[in-house]
């Protein structure tokens, strides 16, 4: 293994926040192999994990310690917090709508700030990582079912606000401690894509999965500006094109495997609950309106009409 800063066309090291063997990493490794071949080794990308969470790898990219990242949507929260509705629960009707929002002008500010303040750019469309659903030891048909239930929510302020606004009792517990906390009953519920519930065996410690589909998680590739500008125009074009293709393909695969994951969960003994989604959306509306009033722009109406 060689190592260098990559500015002279050698190994570009990308820090992934996804665990080893994750589908996004697998896709990225295949894509990196094909790019290496097609550019005769001019663009040599290595995907590796273990550099830390989203904040860490983004900071490492911006200071030139690594050349890019595979991350979630924290960059929006960091660079344009007023647009974080794009990755918040119960805002959108469908993934298509959320995807359109990501590609709209509303996100330009976040993309620009990422370049100017964090010295990196998002390349390609979002990876669709699946709808987040809610698991528990009961179904949550309507929002009133989650009233006062201890639910583990990641440490994302707007998410905590929304769940609290609906009436749940959100608690932040680190992902490492999630399985044991559910097993032991430190918390009673959690929300994640079906794939995560499956691969981390959360079905062993939760009896019901309610398809709240409250938001689709997205994954992103960023390139440091230095690495990006060190490539020729042709290479850049090739990189962007092939990455876009790979992401579209992976997203389609994930959409497919999502229903398979739900089937597997059902086979594993979990009860899959179809909730009254309109009731959930309207229960979230007051707190969303409040968030748009105080922190977000433009407005819930405009966003839902994208």
């Amino acid at each position: 293994a060689s190592l260098s800063t990559g500015s002279d066309g050698q190994t570009l090291l990308f820090g992934s926040v996804y665990p080893s063997g994750h589908v996004i990493n697998e896709m990225a490794i295949d894509w990196a192999d094909s790019i290496r071949e097609e550019t005769d080794g001019r663009v040599d990308i290595t995907i590796d994990e273990g550099f830390g969470g989203e904040r860490e790898v983004m900071e490492q990219t911006s200071i030139g310690a690594i050349e890019g990242t595979l991350i979630g949507a924290t960059w929006v929260l960091q660079q344009a917090p007023s647009r974080y509705w794009v990755e918040s629960p119960f805002v959108f009707d469908s993934w298509e709508q959320q995807r359109r929002a990501y590609m709209s002008d509303y996100l330009d500010e976040a993309r620009e700030n990422l370049k100017s303040e964090a010295n990196q750019r998002v390349v390609g469309p979002p990876v669709y990582r699946g709808f987040r659903h809610t698991t528990g030891n009961q179904g949550f048909q309507t929002p009133s079912d989650i009233e006062g239930v201890n639910i583990r929510i990641p440490e994302v302020d707007p998410w905590l606000n929304v769940w609290e606004g609906i009436g749940a009792a959100p608690t932040t517990i680190s992902f490492d401690e999630l399985y044991s906390s559910l097993q032991q009953g430190v918390v009673d519920a959690q929300e994640n894509p079906a794939e995560t519930v499956n691969s981390y065996s959360l079905y062993e410690v939760q009896s019901h999965i309610t398809k709240t589909s409250h938001l689709a998680s997205t994954g992103w590739f960023t390139f440091s500006e230095d690495a990006w500008s060190s490539m020729s125009d042709d290479d850049r074009e090739l990189v962007e094109e092939t990455l876009t293709d790979s992401i579209e393909e992976l997203s389609a695969d994930i959409e497919q495997s999502e229903s398979e994951a739900l089937d597997e969960l059902e086979d594993g003994g979990m009860e899959v609950v179809e909730p009254d989604r309109d009731a959930w959306l309207s229960a979230a509306e007051p707190v969303l309106e409040e968030l748009f009033e105080n922190q977000w722009e433009p407005s819930l109406d405009e966003v839902r009409n994208i």
Binding site: G148, I153, E155, L160, E164, A169, P170, T171, T172, I173, S174
Partner: peptide, 11 residues
Amino acid sequence: PLFGIYLPWTS
């Protein structure tokens, strides 16, 4: 449980 205040910022 008593007052509905969950202090998610503590961690």
